[in-house]
């Protein structure tokens, strides 16, 4: 369970990233956070694994205030929260298997990982994860030889290998075309259901949010302006979140093609 209690974040340059956020995310939920760029979606998601540190309030993950974490506590926190990025963030020169094994870093001792002494189970797990996202045949390809959609699947496999309790996905489909976007979201949804991993996804495409989310949180200017199940959401809700009428580029489309 993730609980935001009056969480605020002011960046060193004075920008307010988050303002008094109060949100509780229950285990197993598939939450989509929507909002325009600059609304604080990324800051929200990155607070959960402390890639950024909120400056006020308290943030409870499994009933522990993670804002007090340092050193090894932080490592444990990050080991149980996997992250997926807009730009996949793979090591381009390393092969797919090595990239996926990097998901085990938090579980592996420094010495073992430096000498490439991965446990057999870990390598097996990595391979299994690649099979789950249907890209196992590429294990020895260099990451930069793959297409964007394939790279994002590898990064999903990396997160699966990590065996996290939470998955945070920061704009996972923003760099992909519509069919590939749906494919990636389908995998995320499937993992959420099969492994019961709480998943929080940042999106700015309204139609995708509606299609995949159980619950939608709307953000504007660092504040939560909507929070509710997808059944309560209508077009006017989005107009309220975005503060303007809905345009065509707020939609990804292409649901039929995939």
């Amino acid at each position: 369970m993730i609980e935001f209690k009056d969480v605020g974040l002011v960046y060193p340059n004075g920008t307010e990233g988050l303002k008094k956020i109060n949100v509780t995310i229950n285990d197993g939920e598939f939450v989509v956070i929507v909002g325009l760029s600059g609304a604080g979606k990324s800051t929200f998601i990155r607070s959960i694994n402390r890639l950024v540190t909120p400056t006020s309030g308290s943030l409870l993950v499994d009933n522990e205030d993670i804002l007090k974490y340092r050193g090894s506590d932080m490592r444990k926190l990050r080991t149980k929260t996997g992250m997926i990025f807009q730009n996949y963030n793979l090591v381009k020169r390393s092969n797919v298997l090595k990239n996926v094994l990097a998901g085990r870093l938090g579980h592996t001792s420094t010495l073992r990982s430096i000498f490439n002494l991965h446990k057999k189970e870990d390598v097996g797990l990595a391979y299994e994860s690649l099979q789950r996202v249907n890209i196992a045949e590429k294990i020895y390809n260099r990451a930069d030889e793959l297409s964007g959609g394939q790279q994002q699947r590898v990064s999903i496999a990396r997160v699966l290998t990590q065996q996290p309790k939470y998955i945070l996905a920061d704009e996972p489909v923003a760099s992909l075309d519509p069919p590939t976007s749906h494919q990636v979201m389908t995998y995320l949804k499937k993992i959420n259901k099969e492994d019961n991993i709480t998943t929080i996804v940042n999106l700015h495409f309204i139609d995708m949010a509606m299609e995949y989310a159980d619950r939608i949180i709307g953000m504007r200017a660092g504040e939560v302006v909507f929070d509710g199940p997808v059944s309560e959401v209508s077009e006017s809700t989005f107009e309220e979140i975005y503060g303007r009428s809905i345009r065509e580029d707020d939609l990804r489309g292409g649901a039929d093609e995939s």
Binding site: L51, R78, T79, F85, N89, V91, R93, A102, G106, S113
Partner: peptide
Amino acid sequence: NPLEAMRASGGNVLQVIWYALIPQVLP
């Protein structure tokens, strides 16, 4: 970016350098 990903998956400083930085600068 890869360094951030390694940090996010729980790697410590040495692991992040070894897995994300070294492959990029080795050539």
